[in-house]
């Protein structure tokens, strides 16, 4: 085919994107992965160290705890948000009074930053300031609600704040899905005499499968990136009992000055995400291609 001069302007238009992909994405990833195979500490050095950093990383209790916390947070936050968000959407879809107001109230946390979310919940859950203090003030002197300062339970406070932040998002996605369902289908089910909850369970949930998937993907992105919320809510503590991988990497990069270990951790995170993501992206991309034909 003849190359027309007009093509050059196309590439000119794509230049920012190409530069960003080549340098900011691929370049930095290669760099990060590269450092993880050296024994760099404060500054990067070019001394190849094989998998030493990775061996050290998986021997570090704090890293293992943070991985475990990410799994706990991911499973619980996504699970609870999906269920709560779906139930809220279903409830809102029942020709409710003040639907607009309720929708606004349920979704507004999603507009708020993790920093603000974390701070508020930290105050509410703080035993000497928030719920525990208030309930004791009502005369229940022995009331205890100090999850946030207990090692075993601090991560569940992060889950709570995470659900508060994200359930509205799920609700919005699900409500859009519900509103997209053919109204004749509801009518058909009423003619068939199917009980509403059965209809929801057997018919609506399968129809909303794509909505559940995109909500899950969206929420899992937040799980991997989880950093600000933990930082202000628990500071990763008590100790490092509620630490998460993203915070681990940041701490070792900038406070602990151990970039070898930090990049090894980042690379591990990257590989995990890729393993989960690639099949999904592939399927999604493939489906999109088929649709075009």
């Amino acid at each position: 085919m003849k190359q027309r001069p007009i093509r050059w302007s196309v590439y000119a238009g794509l230049t920012p994107a190409i530069l960003i992909v080549v340098f900011a994405y691929i370049g930095t990833i290669v760099w990060t992965v590269g450092i993880s195979f050296t024994d760099s500490r404060m500054l990067p050095v070019a001394r190849f160290a094989g998998f030493n950093q990775y061996i050290r990383l998986f021997g570090t209790e704090r890293w293992l705890t943070s991985i475990q916390n990410m799994v706990i947070f991911g499973v619980l936050m996504i699970g609870i948000s999906l269920v709560l968000g779906f139930l809220l959407a279903v409830a809102l879809d029942q020709r409710i009074r003040a639907e607009g107001f309720l929708r606004t109230v349920i979704l507004y946390p999603y507009a708020i930053s993790f920093i603000v979310t974390g701070l508020v919940w930290q105050w509410i859950l703080n035993p000497t300031l928030g719920i525990e203090q208030t309930v004791r003030g009502w005369g229940f002197e022995s009331f205890r609600f100090d999850w946030i300062i207990q090692k075993e339970t601090a991560i569940y406070c992060v889950v709570l704040a995470g659900v508060w932040h994200a359930a509205g998002l799920v609700m919005a996605i699900m409500l859009a899905g519900l509103r997209g369902i053919d109204p004749d289908l509801w009518k058909a089910s009423r003619i068939d005499g199917i009980k509403p909850w059965r209809f929801y369970w057997h018919i609506v949930v399968p129809i909303l499968r794509p909505s559940f998937i995109s909500a899950t993907v969206l929420l899992s992105l937040g799980v991997v990136k989880l950093y600000d919320l933990v930082l202000v809510l628990t500071g990763g503590g008590p100790g490092f009992s509620s630490d998460v991988p993203a915070k681990f990497v940041m701490d070792y990069l900038f406070q602990r000055q151990n970039i070898g270990l930090a990049t090894a951790a980042a690379t591990t995170l990257l590989i995990t995400v890729l393993c989960v993501l690639t099949p999904w992206l592939y399927a999604e991309y493939f489906r999109a291609e088929k649709r075009k034909d």
Binding site: D184, L185, A188, I191, D192, G193, I194, H202, I203
Partner: peptide, 30 residues
Amino acid sequence: AEPHERGIGMVFQSYALYPRLTVEGNLSFG
């Protein structure tokens, strides 16, 4: 009376078949 108590069957313009159920499932679901 509720729709299902009226002794009627109804066919819709958009078919309104239950997705992800087989034909047999659609016929037998109600």
